[in-house]
Structure formats: C-alpha cells, structure tokens
Nucleic acid binder design. Structure first.
Lengths: 365, 365
DNA sequence: CGGTGTCATGACATCGGTGTCACGATTCCA
DNA sequence: TGGAATCGTGACACCGATGTCATGACACCG
C-alpha cells in the first residue's frame, strides 16, 4: 500500500507538504497542491489511520458494547430486537461528528465484557458506550480510567453517566390519554415482577389514576409475561381471563409491551371478543413491525430508543471534549403516545358495563 | 497512557523484553517475566494497537457495511430488522478468530458507501463485508484492490463473492410440505413484483407443484405487498378477497413474508374465518417475534440469515488468508421449514371444498 | 579444552504519519 | 527602503510497538 513518501516522491515535494495538503493545516501553493493531489489519485493513496493516530493520539474511535444483536437468537429476552434503535441513534450522532463506531457484541454473555473493553482500549477508543437490552441494573468491570463511559438502558451504583427511558412518565401519559378518552376501568397486564420497567410503569399508572381521581383497584393488575417463553401463552391467557371475569371488568387492557398485546389480540379473538368494539387494547414500546401491522393498529407508548441513543452519544462526546455539559444522572428520556385505532376514542362514557362471553377451554392451544 | 517504555523502566528491562513477554515469541527468564507482568499490572498497561499495527501491518479489523440498523427507522423496507441476524452470524465467526468487527451504517443512503469504505481502508481493514437489507442486485464502487470483499444478501455483475438465500428452494420445500400435508389448492400472496425473492420463490412454488403433478393455476397467485406502506392494508385485503372468492378456493394461503401473514391473520379474523380450521396460513422468513407469538403460531420457511452471515465470514477469512477455498459464486444458503400450528396437518384430504363467508365491507378500517 | 549451539537479553532501526523549528522568498507598512 | 510579518517549504525528531542482529553466559560434544 502506498505511503505518504511515495506520494511525496512522485509529486516532487517533501512528505510534510503532502501531509499539509491532506490536512489543510498550513497554506500550500496552488501548483504544489495540484501536483500532490494528482499523485494521490495516481497511487490511490489512502493515509494510514494507525500512523496518524500514533502521533496525534486521537483515534476517532468510539467503542459500543451491546448484547442487542445476539440476544435475539435464543429469544429469552423480553424486549427483542428494538433496542437496536439505540444503536441507530448513537450511529447517527457519531457519523455526523466523523467518529467511527466500533461495535462489539457480547454474544449474550456478560463475561465477555472485560475482554471487549480491553480490545477497545487497545484501539485507544476515545469513549465507550454500553447498551443493555432492557432497562436494568448492571455492574461493569472498573472503568478504564481516562476513557469516558456512558450507559444506555441501564445504570450502576457508581454514578456512571446513564441514559434511561422514562417508564414512569410513559405509562402515565398513556393512561392519562386513555382516561381522557373516557376509560375508567383500565386493566394492566404487566411485565414480570422485579423488572425496573414493571415497577416504574405501575407507578406511572397509579399517578395517572390519582390525578384523575380514580381509585386504584389491584384486581385490575395482573402479570402477563414470564421469562419462560413456553409458559407465556398460558400465563397471559389466565391473566386476561381473570380481569375479564371481574364483576366490573375493564374497558381497556394495557399490555406490558407490544408483543404481549399481539398475543392478547390472538387470545381475545379466539374468545370472540372484538377490538376495539368490545374492548380496547394498548401496548408499550411502539415496536413498529407489530404496532402498525396488527389489525387494528395498536395504540402504544413509545420507548424512545433512538432518542436515548442520540442523547447518550451527545453526552459521551461532551465528556470526551471535556465540556462541562451539565446532565442530571440518570438522564430520563421520554417518548410520545402513539394513538391508533385499537382504543375507542370515547369508551363507555355512559358507564354501562359490558359482559364478556367466556369460552370454556382454558388454553386455546 | 502508559507505554511499553514505562513498563520496561519499572521492570528494569528493555522494551523489547517486555514485547517478548506480551507476545511470547521468544523465551524469557522466569524472574524477568514476573517482574514485567507485575509492572504491567501496576501501570494498567494496555499495548497500543496502532503502534503494533504499523510494524506488523496486520490490523485485525474487518469492516462491515450495512443498512440494517437504520433502514428500520422509516419502515419503508419490506424486511425490517431480521437482517441483523446476518450481522450476528458474522460476529460469531469473527470473534472466534480474534478479529474485531467495525460496523458502519449507511444511514439508509447508499451514497455514503464509498465514504465508509474509505474509512475502513484508512484503518487498513483486512476485509470488507457488505450486507444488503433484502435480496437484491447492487453496484458498489470499485473494490479497493488488495482488500477482499464479500457481499451478503446481494450480488453484482463483477463476480464479487456473494452469499444469497436460496429462495427458490425455501419456497419449494415449504410448498412441498404443504402438499404432503394434503393441500392441493395453495394460494400465494407474493411480495412485490420485480424483487428477486418474488421471482425465485414463485419458481420454487411452481417446481413443488410440478413435482406433485398438480397443475399451476395463476388465479391462485396475487401480489399482497406494496412498497407503499399505507396501501398495504388495502392491497392485501383485496388480494385475499380475490383468491377466497374463487369457485375453488385455496385451503392454505402462503404469504410472502411473516409480516404479511400477520396482516392476513387480522383480515381473516375480521371476516370470521378461523385459522387453521377454515384456512391454513404460512409465511416466509421465520421472523420469530411474529411467527412464534402469533396465535396460532405460524408455519414458515426460514430465511437463514445467521447461517448466511457465518458463511460470508468464513469465506472472507479464507480470502484474507489466501486459501484457495473453492466456493461456487454465488453461494446459496438454505434454511428449514418451521412447522407450526397455523397449517392443518391433514387438510381436506377428502377434497371437499369450503365456501367462505364473505363480509360486505371492502376495507375493514 | 576449544568449538558450536542454545538461551536470555539489549541496541537499534523501522513502520507512516505529524509536530516543531528553521529558512528563503515575498509582501507589507512605516 | 529597511525591518517585520507572512507565505511556502523542507529537515528532523517522535509517537509506540516489533523485526533484526549482536552479545554474553552457559551447556554440550567430540
């Protein structure tokens, strides 16, 4: 591969002058510049980043660690693919600043993280971003001092900069919209207990009720999702059965995520219940392949993954450039409610109670 | 950041000896080794890849160009996220060989590709992989000579190494299984005309029929997908309506992909048609979030994305190491049929024709 | 006991750029 | 018109590793 010396020789100038043409850091004569540019084209010369980096000690690299790519393979993960939107958000900010993103995947095992961090440090990455596949607490190996680190979709106990979705507000806003649309009895099929998202969203749900002066009824809450994939179907069936059997059943079912809402569609339909005429359904995530493709399209709170990624990237860049860009930690990012036709615009405003036909078979499969 | 000289000074040896400890390329005395290792730990020394690379001219980097991450944002893409499984397949092979993957995203515009290739060349990537978001023809800028290139999910006219899904065989195998299960009238709602996948799969469909001695009936074929997202719903509704209105309607509907199948579920249900009792449905892709979550779970041909990625990575590595690893070009990768309960195991073996109840409203929304 | 080979180690050059400094040639302004 | 500032350029050292070669200390063999 051609070097700057080859170019210099052909153009009849010194290597340093070629460097100046490349970087424009000092004036160069018109004719000299042309000769150099011609030589560069002729040789197909591309400067070596490694050599440049040694001298200037700026690598232009950002390391990104994620399990997002690989966690999809065995599907034991409650969210699945959409967290890749975080990567997209990061990417768009980074490429605008000319930084290059090195993406490393944990392959599903967090044990590989130290090794990946080491690789990044070997490449002298100027900053590292760690993306978790769902909102959670993490404990990363001691930060490589000197290299700023930002966590996305997760947080630790050391006060590492962290960007999180505002689950409380997201659920609150969604429920508030449902109340606005006339719903008073709002069923909530939650994600597994113990997840941060579950707790926060339930708080948001309660706050929205409280603000509207509606009393919280624990009967309307049920866990609709298990980590054990194969039991999900039965768990959700049972959860739906329970809330619909209430003497005063809900007029809308909030599901913990869009995937669960998709399952709920199937279950409700096999029971002959129409949406949204008999009951409204709402999701969470705005997982577009699902939310927009389901019939009827799904009303859902958006998990602002792309925005979270962009925020994290901005934050990291300001840390690298040592700007005292004040950020609260963690930084909460909220998203809009996407209103679609799975929720009636004006539900049982008259307060009449709908009785659901219940089928006999417990498990439709 | 500490250098090899700092380590050498502390350990009381020459830098070269430290290098030997790091690389184990020459014998080092026991006590010397210990002293060096202690110094390395003490300083938290990590060797600089850039410096190492300059001497050895082996970067250990592989460049990966994809639109997979960003094309999801505006959703104008027929496949969506699953092509990320290709990245996962590549990743798993690469990390096993100690290569580091640099992933760059086109941000949806192929105009950025030359720029990204340049970045990889600057980093002296030892090979480049280009991943397309769906099976298609591409025309990349002239290959950076000296750097091997492998295309995945796409091909060009220059005979660049290319790994493609075997769409013909996938659809053939699926249809053959349907025939085996007793189906004779097989409706096929295709992806948009003009796509390679559409043409190849139709060939596979015909071949399976021919092998079973079933006559091809063009009435059973209809385009069910538009690139224009907002018209998809109507197009599919109409396509389904057409085939179901045939005097001798199909007993199973093959959909061009799983997303279309998901739409079909909604449409069929609003018309009061049960699956799989009244009609069976099959998809393509094995997009697991959809195929496994739908009720009933969807029978679908697998698009072997992860395997394609792995094959491409293997091929690239053999090109880099200059092995004369003979490969046919393009390399076709096929995947299994995933049999789930959306298809009846033994359909209308008696040959009786089912009449479908047709609703009046054209568009359910 | 001298010659040869192996072991353990260091001195030094080198990879391909860029930072620093120096220097001649212009241009500018008092 | 002379001194200062600016322009255009090159010589040289340096970034942090590793390849090459040299060297001294032993061990081994005939």
């Amino acid at each position: 591969m051609a070097t700057i010396y080859d170019v210099a020789k052909i153009a009849g100038v010194s290597p340093k002058t070629v460097s100046r043409v490349l970087n424009g850091d000092a004036p160069v004569g018109e004719k000299t510049r042309e000769a150099v540019e011609k030589a560069i084209l002729e040789l197909g010369y591309v400067p070596s980043n490694a050599a440049r980096m040694m001298r200037s000690s700026r690598s232009g690299l950002i390391g990104l660690i994620t399990g997002a790519i690989s966690t999809t393979s065995d599907g034991n993960d409650p969210k699945g693919l959409p967290d890749l939107l975080i990567v997209q958000g990061i990417q768009s900010v980074m490429s605008a600043t000319g930084m290059t993103l090195m993406i490393a995947d944990t392959g599903g095992s967090s044990a590989r993280v130290p090794e990946l961090i080491r690789t990044f440090v070997e490449h002298r990455a100027e900053g590292i971003i760690y993306v978790a596949d769902y909102h959670q607490h993490v404990e990363l190996p001691p930060a490589p001092k000197g290299t700023p680190l930002v966590l996305v979709n997760c947080y630790d106990d050391r006060g590492t900069p962290s960007v999180l979705p505002d689950d409380e507000r997201g659920q609150h806003d969604l429920v508030a919209r449902l109340i606005e649309a006339g719903h008073r009895r709002i069923g909530y099929l939650t994600l597994p207990k113990g997840m941060d998202a579950t707790r926060l969203r339930l708080e948001g749900y309660k706050r929205a009720l409280a603000e509207a002066g509606i009393e919280f009824d624990p009967e309307l809450i049920s866990t609709g999702f298990m980590h054990d994939k194969h039991r999900n179907s039965a768990v959700l069936w049972d959860a739906i059965d329970r809330v619909l059997s209430l003497p005063n059943p809900p007029t809308v079912l909030c599901c913990g995520n869009d995937e669960m809402a998709m399952r709920a569609y199937g279950i409700l339909r096999t029971r002959g219940i129409r949406m949204p005429e008999d009951i409204s359904v709402a999701g969470y995530d705005n997982y577009r392949v699902i939310a927009e493709t389901l019939f009827p399209p799904l009303t859902t709170a958006e998990l602002p993954y792309a925005a979270m990624g962009a925020r994290a990237a901005d934050w990291l860049l300001s840390l690298i450039n040592d700007e005292t860009h004040q950020q609260t930690n963690p930084t909460l990012v909220s998203g809009p409610v996407n209103w679609r036709s799975s929720v009636t615009a004006n539900a049982s405003a008259d307060g009449k109670t709908i009785r659901f036909p219940l089928s006999n078979g417990r498990n439709p499969q």
